[in-house]
């Protein structure tokens, strides 16, 4: 099954990928293609847009219309693509630094517009490609090469941020919870509006090493232990104590941006 998906949706001649052994990004990319496959989207009508960073290299491996943009600007490019060609399914693959530091402005405004773009942030809590600097999602007092004495920045809850800015669908899952992750991405793509998925990844090479989180397997186990499915947490809140909730966190469909613009076009057509 797996190799069939690879043949169908990946550019095999672009592999192997650049990600380190033990990186969670490959699992997340796989979840994205499983979601696309389950939804039976026409690959010709799928546009994958990415920014700069480890996660953003995913676009090059995926056999769709792919656009690997500048640092932080994936959502701004994607907005131009979606606005000018609303029949495309636009999916943005990006990292924590790319979306919420340099690209933070584009994230909140794309969410505010509720434009039909699905954003999947591969959150590994670190700038991996540049060698382990702290990002807006690096936990308080964790270490990075630019936080040698501990990170004194508070970190973002990306899902709260997206919801607060106006996203109509928000979900979270981890590279460990790969099955649930694919389902959440599927629901996110199905939502006609701005959807945000925090896909928690792991970076054993930089974040793990700097913070003594053990090897790749240990980091996966940490994801398993630290995150609790929202369905379980709702039934047995005590199991969620001190843990992070994952699952579908918000689903509130709203009128979509390009649809609203189309109404203006239709109104002007009638007038003439």
């Amino acid at each position: 099954m797996q190799s069939e998906l690879v043949q169908k949706y990946l550019r095999e001649d672009r592999l192997p990928h650049i990600w380190c052994p033990g990186c969670g990004h490959g699992v997340i990319m796989h979840a994205v293609i499983r979601a696309i496959d389950n939804l039976k989207l026409d690959p010709e009508k799928v546009c994958i847009v990415s920014g700069i960073g480890c996660s953003s290299r995913a676009s090059g491996y995926m056999n769709f219309n792919t656009l690997h943009t500048t640092h932080g600007r994936a959502l701004a490019f994607a907005t131009g693509v979606k606005m000018s060609q609303p029949d495309l399914h636009v999916i943005v693959l990006t990292g924590d630094g790319d979306t919420s530091a340099i690209g933070g402005n584009h994230l909140i405004h794309a969410a505010r517009r509720n434009i039909d773009i699905t954003t999947i942030t591969f959150n590994n809590n670190i700038y991996g490609m540049t060698g382990g600097q702290y990002s807006p999602t690096t936990p308080y007092m964790d270490f990075g090469t630019t936080a040698p004495y501990g990170n004194i920045d508070n970190s973002f809850d990306l899902c709260d941020l997206a919801k607060g800015a106006g996203a109509s669908y928000v979900g979270r899952a981890t590279a460990y919870h790969a099955v649930q992750l694919a389902k959440i991405i599927e629901s996110a793509i199905s939502n006609k509006g701005f959807s945000f998925v925090e896909a928690v990844s792991s970076c054993p090479t930089y974040y793990g090493r700097k913070n003594k989180k053990g090897d790749a397997v240990n980091m996966m186990k940490t994801l398993k232990d630290m995150y609790v499915d929202i369905k379980i947490a709702e039934k047995k809140p005590e199991l969620a104590d001190g843990k992070i909730i994952f699952g579908e966190l918000y689903n509130n469909p709203q009128d979509e941006y390009t649809d609203k613009y189309q109404k203006i076009i239709d109104m002007l057509k009638k007038e003439n």
């Binding site: 701004a76 131009g80 693509v81 979606k82 606005m83 000018s84 495309l88 402005n105 584009h106």
Partner: peptide, 20 residues
Amino acid sequence: IQMEDEIAGMAATLGGSLTG
């Protein structure tokens, strides 16, 4: 579309052109 900043204005313009 009025974008959120000048950088986004340029990025969206390029995105628009890519769809033809």
